[in-house]
Structure formats: C-alpha cells, structure tokens
C-alpha cells in the first residue's frame, strides 16, 4: 500500500498474509494483507462466497485463520488463549444479518449483554448489573432511538427495531471496532438506509473502525470511506467508495451489474416510514 508507513503507526487492525481454509477444503481467504485505521468506515463487497463474512469474522476470531497473523491494537489475536481473546472481544462490537438477539429476553437484558465481558462472571451470573452499566445500557438505547422499548421482549419488535437493539448492545461494549455482517440484508430499503446512516454516524462520533459487509453496490458507494472488494478470497479492490464506478464493481464481481445488486430507494427514506434516522442530529 502506498501509505504503508502512516498506516502502521495508526493501524488498529492488521491482516498479515491471512488465509483461511475450511475443514471441507474450501479456501475462503487467500493471502490477505490489509491495514485498518481507527475511525475508518469500510464496506467489504463481493459476491456471496467471496469471503466477506470470513474476513470480518477473522477480526474477532469467530473464524480462526489457518495462516498468517491478525493484529488488533498491536496484539496478535491468532495465538491468544480464550481468556485474553475475550478481553479483546469485549471492545469489538458485532452486528448480524439476523440481529442475533436473545428473543425471550427483554430489550434491556439484550443491551446489557454488551457488558458481560467487562464485568466479572460471578457478578453477571446473578443477573444484577451495577448501576453504572444499567445507565450505559439505557443511554445506548436512547442513542438508537428506542428507550421506551427497554422492558419489552426482544421478539416483539420489528426487524429494524431489533437491529437497533443489536446496535445498542454493541454500543454498550464501548467498542473501538464495529463489525457488521450483512446488517441490512433482512431489512426493507428505507430501514436499511436508516441503519446504515446510524452506523455511519456512530462511526464518526465514536471514532469507530467500522467494517460492513454489503452486497448492494449503491450503499457501498453512498456510505463507505473505503471499499474493499473480494473475489474468490482475494482482495481485488481497495480504494475510496465515493469515486467508484460500475466498471469497478463489475471488475470485483467479474460479471455485469444487475438490478438486484442495488438497494435503491434512498429518495423515499423518511417519507415512507415517517421517522427520521435516530442518530441524525
């Protein structure tokens, strides 16, 4: 990379020749080297099966790479023991396509789960959280705009609201890295744009390194400071999102752009849902 020297100094996450081969022989990542700086908002794009999810999941070692090293805050996480890994994960928020909430628990309980790794286990097993952590959880819910849902069961909320609970849970971790694995794939276009705007604003306000898997190219263009294109486990594009053309995406996808590669519908946001983005100030 051209700015290698500055990147090393300010790097928060570094992939060094990372490869991942799954037990079934599938090579999801091939010799990937990347550097991510604090506060960067990065979209990872590529066809399904290109290794987007594997790349993101390597950052918190939900997927263990088979080769190479991954440095988070200068520490190699690939050789870490479980305990040490948990302290690293404590500061890495993650958002999923299916929200991954504990459905029968209240919204507040779900948000408090972001504090588990910050508190001693004996303490959290009682289910009674310190007042400071409760306050933090409520503040997170307020930031995503649904404080009134705190005592409702998580599975009674709409998809968009559930994803906000998931964002609040990540926020409550007081993270410096936010991973989002297809966060908008299950949402309708207006809600999807809202969630992307919320993520973008959070990233800015908290100086969060944010990695988002997307397969909608217009969303990547719209929101990402930087786009990483993956094809068959290899990085084939790494550059700013704003200037990207359809030709760039066609090069990443290795095929023509189709209508379903676009999320669209940005112009109807707000009007159709009647609610403005919770984090827009």
């Amino acid at each position: 990379m051209s700015n290698a020297t500055t990147a090393v100094n300010s790097s928060l996450v570094t992939f060094e020749n990372v490869s991942k081969t799954f037990p079934n022989g599938h090579r999801a990542l091939k010799n990937v080297s990347l550097t991510f700086a604090p506060g960067e908002f990065i979209a990872v794009v590529g066809l399904s099966g290109a290794g987007k999810s594997t790349l993101i999941r390597c950052v918190n070692r939900l997927v263990m790479p088979t080769e190479g090293r991954i440095l988070v805050n200068g520490k190699d996480i690939t050789g870490m023991g479980e305990g040490e890994l948990r302290t690293v994960r404590a500061r890495i928020g993650m958002i999923f396509q299916n929200y991954n909430l504990v459905r029968r628990s209240s919204v507040l309980r779900n948000v408090l789960a972001g504090r588990l790794a910050h508190l001693p286990t004996w303490r959290t097993l009682t289910g009674m959280f310190p007042a400071a952590d409760m306050e933090l959880a409520f503040r997170s819910l307020e930031r995503v705009g649904i404080p009134e849902k705190a005592y409702q069961r998580a599975d009674t909320l709409s998809g968009g609201q559930q994803q906000r609970v998931a964002i609040a849970r990540a926020l409550t971790q007081q993270p410096h890295i936010l991973l989002a694995d297809e966060p908008v794939a299950s949402l309708d276009p207006p809600t999807a744009h809202q969630v992307m705007r919320d993520l973008k604003n959070l990233s800015r306000e908290e100086n969060l390194l944010t990695l988002v898997n997307l397969h909608f190219i217009d969303m990547a263009q719209e929101y990402a400071d930087r786009v990483i294109g993956l094809r068959a486990g290899e990085v084939v594009f790494d550059g700013p999102g704003a200037g990207m053309t359809e030709a760039d995406f066609e090069a990443i996808y290795n095929r023509r752009i189709r209508p379903d590669d676009l999320r669209g519908a940005l112009d109807i946001v707000g009007e159709s849902t009647g609610e403005a983005s919770a984090l827009a100030r």
Partner: peptide, 12 residues
C-alpha cells in the same frame, strides 16, 4: 445466533 452474538461480545 444469540450464542454467537454473546460469544462475539466476549462472554464466557
């Protein structure tokens, strides 16, 4: 899914 999320957040 919920187990994965809590595990990703560093829960034991």
């Amino acid at each position: 899914n919920a187990i994965e999320a809590l595990s990703a957040a560093g829960a034991s």
